[in-house]
Design a protein around this nucleic acid. Sequence first.
DNA 1: GGAATTCCATGAAAATTCTGGTTGTGGATG
DNA 2: CATCCACAACCAGAATTTTCATGGAATTCC
Lengths: 226, 226
Amino acid sequence: MKILVVDDEALFVKGIRFNLQSDGFEVLCGSTGLDALRLTREEKPDLVILDVMMPQMDGMTACRKIREFSTVPIIMLTAKSENADKLLGFDCGADDYLTKPFNILELKARIRALLRRSGVEPQHPGGTLLTSGPFCLDSGSRNATKNGTTVELTAKEFDLIEFLMKHPNQVYSREALLDALWGDENRSDSRTVDVHIRRLREKLEDNPAEPKFILTKWSVGYYFRK
Amino acid sequence: MKILVVDDEALFVKGIRFNLQSDGFEVLCGSTGLDALRLTREEKPDLVILDVMMPQMDGMTACRKIREFSTVPIIMLTAKSENADKLLGFDCGADDYLTKPFNILELKARIRALLRRSGVEPQHPGGTLLTSGPFCLDSGSRNATKNGTTVELTAKEFDLIEFLMKHPNQVYSREALLDALWGDENRSDSRTVDVHIRRLREKLEDNPAEPKFILTKWSVGYYFRK
DNA sequence: GGAATTCCATGAAAATTCTGGTTGTGGATG
DNA sequence: CATCCACAACCAGAATTTTCATGGAATTCC
């Protein structure tokens, strides 16, 4: 079980490291937001602990950037003096927040709880797994499964369902989907999106005529319901 | 999205309830550990908030018993005076801990984070929440709720109420609304606005004949009263 | 050539707008 | 103060327009 700790106070990191190691965790360390990004990408830790105040790139920014490519559990640390409200209100995608100074027992308890809740699956080599309901997408092998049996998807189909599943319940207009998946050039007709949606429904929905996951928001666009 | 709050301090529960409801959650309440068990089993809430100190059955026992049949996300509350260590060390299966008194923003942030992590809720990734009185609009999923229950709105209806709620108490003439929501071209008859206002009242007001929120300023226009 | 992708046409469903009549409001008038 | 009047707002349902799903044809890309 690998944990990444990122904070610019060396002594503090050392303390945490010792404590977690003696609990049987493997501990990686960094001191800047850039470290956090790099190490998360390269080492694929099972959990990340991020201080808010850091040189080069602050913790919240780092957190948001990590969220762009990973769903690894993240615990943010903030000094008591800093106004925590900003952290609370501004959703950067962290799972937990802790104010320094804290009881080391509390940190450990929160790590345990978070690992338990996250399912602790060691990160998938290569790509990340995206699961929701009966579906599971593997962005590494670009395989899709429904209830464990694989479903053959074409490239565009995979891109589309992946995008929608990454942002469940968020409604996207055809234009927005074209922007995100087709890019600026060879922008197709917006009806093209409809066709791919239809194919996906035929392949993924139990009853394509009454879709339960790939839904239409009338006069707005499409979304994936989680 | 259903949340169960269990605490024996009625006033406290009432405050939480109000706060969560105005964020669009459906809120159930209880006052004993037995309530917690029963309601979790019967109502299957998406998240449970449990106070530690309660008559009949304390929160930690309730939590453990819930864990025997459910993996619902659980947040524990504990008074500052009580020694939190026991809670931390003794793993009862909760996902998060919070010491009273706490900032309501913090509770909300933790609820959001936990729901996101548990995969229960399709959180609002890009969309913002607009709440006022019993209403809550989510621009991401384009869902509207009243006292926690969703109300089906068409595209124009959503755009209109969103616009009015964004500028509460500000009166807009029909012309201004046409400008803002219909755009320069295909400018409809100004009576069209009336029709949409009527539909909104039918769907949102308790008594559409005596609107309390979507109000008319005679010979001027309409406005949303906060 | 075959699969994937894009485009097009059509009927159906839903939303939006329009219409005509009814009700309600506020000011003017005696 | 009571009554009347012009007009603003409301209502219900029909007509119109928009939007979507579907099947199939055309095109592109390996």
